[in-house]
């Protein structure tokens, strides 16, 4: 049972890199605890900025620092970061093109019990519709670490959403990773996972179903594929952590070689992964696409796993959807 949440994985990378890179700065809005960034604030007080409960200020300050050469990592709960400071993300970060990495913590329905004010079921839609804003939802802690390392290498804006709770390891120590390439997992067999650029689509052959997932839904998607395989149903899972830019090449290959596409996300049915995948598949290689997502209603409250189960956003729900639609 993994105990390390993805937010902690980000902190670990930044702790490591900040030893030699004085330009890494971390900004929090009274959120260093929930961001797992307290160790960074302790270790690098001169590279840490507390702005108090002021998310708009948080993002503008980050942009100003980035303009002066800093690599700004800006942490706040996804629900606030993606909407309270939406305009700052649009103007000061994306439009002014500053090197700010907006990290939405406790994303989706991590705060399941706390109600809609604390749910971020619209952050993918909000952020991905801003020009020059990339959107990433890494799946497990290993991929999160790889993503963080990669984002330290570029100078462009990005929004990264991670959940509050630890998620089960998907990749173990071996994690195939190329920036903006989905990882391709045949029949839910993670040992065979590769970045899409290295996938041998010929050898992967024809599948009954392509399951495209991101963030915390990737784990259940992989388990669903394993369940399907036991029933003799071949599938391919795309871990589409790069929701924008969407890995269309991989998507077209996966969808083109499948009878059915299922998308799974911890997000509203509008403007998220499902919408992006449906758009691309409809125009490039028309196939039936089913979007599994949170409903367009204030989500029922409770522990996030109970909420996922309620809406069928789990391995059984995904597998069942596949079998019913094949």
């Amino acid at each position: 049972m993994n105990k390390i949440p993805n937010r902690k994985a980000i902190c670990n990378v930044l702790l490591e890199r900040a030893q030699t890179d004085r330009d890494i700065v971390v900004l929090c809005s009274d959120s260093r605890g929930s961001a797992s960034m307290a160790p960074f604030f302790e270790r690098f007080p001169d590279q840490s900025v507390e702005v108090g409960i002021a998310e708009q200020n948080l993002v503008s300050l980050s942009a100003g620092m980035a303009k002066c050469g800093k690599k700004a990592f800006c942490f706040s709960p996804a629900s606030f970061l993606s909407t309270r400071s939406y305009e700052q993300a649009k103007v000061d970060v994306a439009y002014s093109n500053t090197n700010v990495k907006l990290v939405g913590i406790s994303g989706g329905i991590s705060y399941g019990e706390l109600g809609m004010s604390h749910h971020s079921a619209q952050d993918i839609a909000a952020m991905s519709s801003i020009p020059n804003m990339r959107v990433y939802l890494p799946s497990d802690r290993f991929q999160t670490a790889c993503l963080t390392e990669a984002l330290l290498q570029d100078q462009k804006p990005a929004y990264i959403r991670v959940g509050r709770n630890p998620v089960e390891n998907i990749y173990q120590e071996y994690c195939p990773f190329e920036i903006d390439q989905a990882s391709v997992i045949p029949n839910g067999d993670v040992q065979k996972a590769v970045s899409s650029g290295k996938a041998n689509w010929q050898a992967l052959g024809e599948n009954d179903v392509a399951i495209v997932a991101c963030g915390e839904m990737t784990g259940p998607a992989v388990s669903a594929a394993a369940l399907l395989w036991e029933k003799g149903i071949p599938s391919v899972v795309l871990d589409m952590y790069c929701v924008k830019p969407l890995d269309k090449k991989a998507l077209i290959q996966a969808a083109g070689h499948a009878k059915l596409v299922i998308t799974v996300e911890e997000h509203s049915p509008f403007g998220g992964l499902g919408a992006a995948v449906s758009q691309a598949v409809a125009s490039e290689c028309p196939k039936k696409v089913i979007n599994l997502a949170l409903p367009d209603t204030p989500v029922i409250t409770g522990k996030s796993q109970a909420v996922f189960d309620y809406y069928g956003l789990n391995s059984v729900g995904i597998a069942k959807t596949a079998m019913e639609n094949l």
């Binding site: 700065v25 503008s60 300050l61 942009a63 100003g64 303009k67 002066c68 103007v91 000061d92 002014s96």
Partner: peptide, 25 residues
């Protein structure tokens, strides 16, 4: 021109970030 502006209420907070960075360095 350092930053795009237009929507009001952005300049001061952005400059706070710039001033913090300048002091840091």
């Amino acid at each position: 021109i350092e930053m795009n502006s237009g929507s009001l209420g952005h300049g001061l907070p952005v400059c706070v970030g710039m001033a913090l960075a300048g002091r840091m360095d």
